[in-house]
C-alpha cells in the first residue's frame, strides 16, 4: 500500500492506483474529458492536471501513478487558469449550438463550460468544418463537435475488439474516422455513443425526440438474448425514445445493437391493439369479453369432447417468470394437462 496526501487529506491506496482514482476515493472532484473509468488512461485533454510537491510542472492525474509520500494539490488559481485555457481552446473550435444540440443538458463539455464560466472565447481563428455524410442508420457522427478525447477509439478497440475507427491526420487536421474516411460499417453496438462526452456521437433515432430534461428514466432488463443486460429506458410522453445502460451495473454499461438501438418495435404501428376473432377466414375486432368468453367456451367444449390432453399450451421465453408460472399453472389446473412447453428446444 502507498500513502499519500491529496489536498492535505491522507489516504492509503494500492500500488499502481492513479492520482485521479485516489482523489476519487477521497471524494475530491477533478475535471476530466478524455478519462473513462472502464478504459485505459489517455492523458489527452489535460484537464485533470494537478500539482505535485517537488515536481516543477503540473501532471495529468489520470496517467500519474501514486508514489509514497506524494503531496498532491488538485486546485490552485494557476491550475484553474490552465484548465480554463484548455477548455477555451477546445471550445474555440466547437460549434456554439448548444441551443439545438441533442446532448444539451447531458453533455460533459457543456457542464465544464458552465462551471468555468466560459461565455466568450479569447481564441478565434480557423474552425474545422466537416460535412455530415454518414449513411449508417444508427449513429449520428457530428465530427465538428468532436474534441478528440479518443474515448470512442478506445472503447471500440479495448472493449468491443472491433477497431472500426481511429485517429487520422495530424495536428489541427486530426480527426477520428473509419478506414479511408468511409462510412461507419461496424457492429453498431453504440459503445462509442455511450462514452462520447459531447454531442459528436448520438443515436440517429434520438434526433428531436426530446432532451434529457423531459425524460423519465426506468431501469429494467433487456428483452433480447439471455445475457440479461441492464437497460435504462428513457421515456417521454409514454414513448421510449432512447435506451442506455448504467456503468455501475454488471454489464458495465455496454450493450449491443439490438439492446441499444432495437427498441422502436415497442411503439410500432403494427402492435396488436384489440382482440381479433376469425370469422369466415377474416379477422374481426372483438371486445375482450367476447374474445375471452369465446376462448373459454371452445376450450371447455374440446376438453369435454376429447379430454384435457387434446389441448396443449406453448408458453414464451420472452415473457416474465410470473406470466410463465401462471401459464403452466393454468394448463395444469384449469385445463388439466401437462402439455405445456416453450421454445427452449428451438
Amino acid at each position: 500500500m502507498i500513502k499519500l496526501t491529496i489536498n492535505g487529506k491522507t489516504i492509503e491506496v494500492a500500488e499502481g492506483t492513479t492520482v485521479l482514482d485516489a482523489a476519487k476515493m477521497l471524494n475530491i472532484e477533478i475535471p476530466t474529458l478524455c478519462h473513462h473509468p472502464k478504459l485505459t488512461p489517455f492523458g489527452g485533454c489535460r484537464l485533470c492536471i494537478v500539482e505535485v510537491k517537488g515536481v516543477p510542472r503540473p501532471l495529468t492525474s489520470c496517467t500519474t501513478p501514486v508514489s509514497e509520500g506524494m503531496e498532491v494539490t488538485t486546485s490552485t488559481p494557476a491550475l484553474e487558469g490552465l484548465r480554463k485555457t484548455v477548455l477555451e481552446l477546445i471550445l474555440s473550435d466547437h460549434p456554439n449550438d448548444c441551443m439545438v444540440c441533442e446532448k444539451a443538458g447531458d453533455c460533459t463539455l457543456q457542464e465544464l463550460a458552465y462551471f468555468y464560466g466560459i461565455r466568450e472565447n479569447r481564441f478565434g481563428g480557423e474552425r474545422r468544418i466537416y460535412g455530415k455524410k454518414d449513411g449508417n442508420p444508427f449513429i449520428e457522427r457530428d465530427m465538428e463537435k468532436c474534441i478528440l478525447c479518443g474515448r470512442c477509439v478506445k472503447v471500440c478497440d479495448e472493449v468491443q475488439g472491433v477497431g472500426a475507427i481511429d485517429f487520422a491526420y495530424r495536428g489541427f487536421k486530426s480527426k477520428i474516422c473509419p478506414t479511408f474516411e468511409k462510412d461507419l460499417d461496424c457492429e453498431f453496438c453504440g459503445q462509442c455513443v455511450a462514452v462520447c462526452p459531447t454531442g459528436a456521437l448520438t443515436g440517429k433515432m434520438w434526433q428531436l425526440r426530446g432532451r434529457q430534461k423531459d425524460i423519465k428514466e426506468i431501469d429494467t432488463t433487456c428483452s433480447y438474448c439471455g445475457t440479461g443486460c441492464n437497460l435504462t429506458l428513457h421515456v417521454r410522453q409514454n414513448e421510449v425514445v432512447r435506451v442506455t445502460s448504467k456503468e455501475d451495473t454488471w454489464n458495465e454499461g455496454w450493450l449491443c445493437v439490438k439492446g441499444r438501438f432495437g427498441y422502436s418495435f415497442i411503439n410500432s404501428p403494427d402492435r396488436l391493439k384489440k382482440p381479433l376473432i376469425k370469422r369466415n377466414g377474416k379477422f374481426e375486432e372483438a371486445s375482450w369479453n367476447e374474445a375471452l368468453d369465446y376462448i373459454s367456451a371452445k376450450l371447455r367444449e374440446i376438453k369435454e369432447k376429447h379430454g384435457p390432453d387434446s389441448i396443449a399450451g406453448l408458453s414464451s421465453a420472452r415473457c416474465t417468470n410470473e406470466e410463465n408460472y401462471l401459464f403452466q399453472k393454468f394448463m395444469r389446473t384449469g385445463i388439466g394437462t401437462n402439455n405445456v412447453d416453450h421454445c427452449a428446444r428451438l
Binding site: 439471455g226 421465453a317 415473457c319 417468470n321 408460472y325 403452466q328 395444469r332 402439455n339 416453450h342 427452449a344
Partner: peptide, 22 residues
C-alpha cells in the same frame, strides 16, 4: 450454455416444461 432468449431460463424454472412442475 449461453441461453438465447431473455427468459428461456425463467420459463424453464417457472415450470413451462411438460415433464416437470416449477
Amino acid at each position: 450454455p449461453l441461453r438465447g432468449q431473455n427468459n428461456v431460463q425463467g420459463a424453464c424454472d417457472a415450470g413451462c416444461l411438460p415433464n416437470v412442475y416449477p
